[in-house]
């Protein structure tokens, strides 16, 4: 296997790429320079910490530590999904439940089928991959839902007035929001190999693995992401629509 050779000097040179972004921001007066430097600094700090932390966890190879790290990823993904919800009556536990269940059901199937082993070098990256995709899907679900509750306010009121329960009144919104959450994953699955060589496959090829072997992992990832996005968005959607109603089945701010 050919060794990767990213040394500190090549990293410094690659920083020039950031300067191109800064130059564009300055020239076009986008006002993003501060934001670019802040995000780069934050990414470097986070990655350095994660790099050393993962090195330690991989070396120790302890089940509890691996599980704790995976759970840490889930908690953070749920927090970020929660923050993306524009509804002022949102609840963190809706997001946590969605990310937790979708991540660990998918992981459970992968481990049980022998596709991955319960070792930190496999569990932690896969947790991150699943949780981050669920997070994005749930965020889309929340935003779409909020927009539609706003746009279809009168329609919901009329359904409630006709005696519909809150679930029946919200059903078209719920379906549309779950569909919106899943669409990017489905679309990207359609173009894999034609447009994009996704992260895991690229990483394996980059590290010298035979592309035919690498695609098997990518196929697994594709299965995994479709499952996790659908599970996550369904759980989050069915939990989140309730936050638009009060105990008297009235639209809050109705």
């Amino acid at each position: 296997m050919k060794q990767l050779s990213v040394n500190n000097l090549s990293l410094v040179f690659s920083f020039a790429l950031v300067l191109i972004g800064v130059a564009i921001s300055e020239r076009e007066k986008l006002g993003l320079t501060k934001d670019i430097f802040y995000s780069i600094a934050r990414a470097i700090v986070q990655l350095v910490i994660v790099g050393y932390l993962l090195k330690y966890i991989f070396r120790v190879d302890n089940v509890i530590l691996t599980s704790a790290m995976s759970l840490f990823i889930v908690v953070n993904a749920a927090w970020n999904a929660y923050k993306r919800n524009p509804n002022q009556y949102k609840r963190y536990w809706d997001s946590f439940l969605a990310v937790f269940v979708s991540t660990y059901v998918t992981m459970g199937v992968l481990v049980a089928s022998g596709a991955i082993k319960f070792v930190p070098s496999q569990i932690i990256p896969i947790s991150g991959m699943i949780a981050s995709n669920t997070m994005v899907g749930i965020g889309l679900c929340y935003r779409n839902m909020d927009q539609q509750f706003h746009d279809q306010h009168q329609q919901i009121l009329e359904k409630l007035a006709l005696g519909a329960d809150t679930k029946l009144a919200s059903l078209p919104i719920l379906r549309a929001s779950i569909k919106t959450a899943m669409q990017p994953t489905i679309d990207s699955a359609k173009t894999i190999g034609l447009v994009s060589l996704p992260g895991m496959m690229s990483g394996l090829i980059f590290a010298g693995v035979d592309p035919v072997r690498a695609i098997k992992y990518q196929i697994m990832v594709t299965f995994m992401l479709i499952t996790t996005t659908s599970l996550g968005s369904i759980i989050a959607g069915y939990a989140a629509y309730k936050n638009y109603f009060n105990a008297q089945a009235q639209l809050i701010n109705g």
Partner: peptide, 12 residues
Amino acid sequence: TTAYRKEVSYCF
């Protein structure tokens, strides 16, 4: 609530 609204119906 849902049973009540079937008996007391509001037309907008």
